[in-house]
Design a binder for these strands. Structure first.
Lengths: 110, 110
DNA sequence: TATTTATACCTTATAATACAAGGTATTGTA
DNA sequence: TACAATACCTTGTATTATAAGGTATAAATA
């Protein structure tokens, strides 16, 4: 099933933070991790994942360093900061609050 | 609890359609209906509800007519169309699909 | 009675978002 | 050797929800 990408708005950072909370990763791998963890529902395009990571880093929620992968290739490895973990916890609470209200709204009166 | 208004993005039309599916209503009343039904979680500002209704009407998902209220005041009464009902059903399915994936994402590996 | 609050409608301008579309370069595979 | 996959990135854009402003009437209250 396909769904309107607009639904993601406002939730993307939470998705990315949550994926990164499972362990450090580089951008491209994170994209795949999100895809797997969501059972192929969330497919974040590259034009989305890179700017998002840059924004999160700028805000101090994640940090990165250039490292050499097994293949000898330079990759940028991201990890979540303690500030990022706190934000993620807040976002999780926000999500459950929001989704509960949506459930109330969508339950038919009938 | 307050939550980031950005979370609403992409879900607003669904919220409004769902509220209107409980019966015809005018804009101002709809705002209150949404507030009540969501147990005070969703508080849609007027600068949001009016343009949203205009958009929904333009798309043929709702329709409206000027009527006279009990107080003798002219109000614009909105009701959901059959096209709107179909869209709402789609949106409900989209929501449950989306929220299931979010749940998968937010569940910690630990 | 005068004033304030609630009701009821609306528009314009704006910040933020996610993303399409474009690009570069390397590594692995057929 | 060609092609796909990996890995990174930027620019420009459409859409969104909303803040901030406005108008006018009805109800409540001081």
């Amino acid at each position: 099933m396909k769904f309107n990408r607009e639904l993601m708005k406002g939730h993307l950072k939470t998705i990315v933070l949550s994926a990164l909370s499972d362990g450090p990763c580089h951008a491209y791998g994170l994209k795949k991790r999100i895809q797997e963890k969501s059972l192929d529902v969330f497919s974040i395009p590259e034009g989305t994942i890179y700017p998002t990571l840059h924004k999160l880093e700028k805000d101090g929620l994640i940090e990165s360093q250039e490292v050499e992968s097994q293949s000898g290739r330079e990759i940028r490895n991201y990890s979540i900061t303690s500030k990022g973990i706190k934000t993620l916890e807040d976002n999780r609470r926000e999500w459950s609050f929001f989704s509960r209200a949506m459930k109330l709204m969508l339950e038919s009166e009938l």
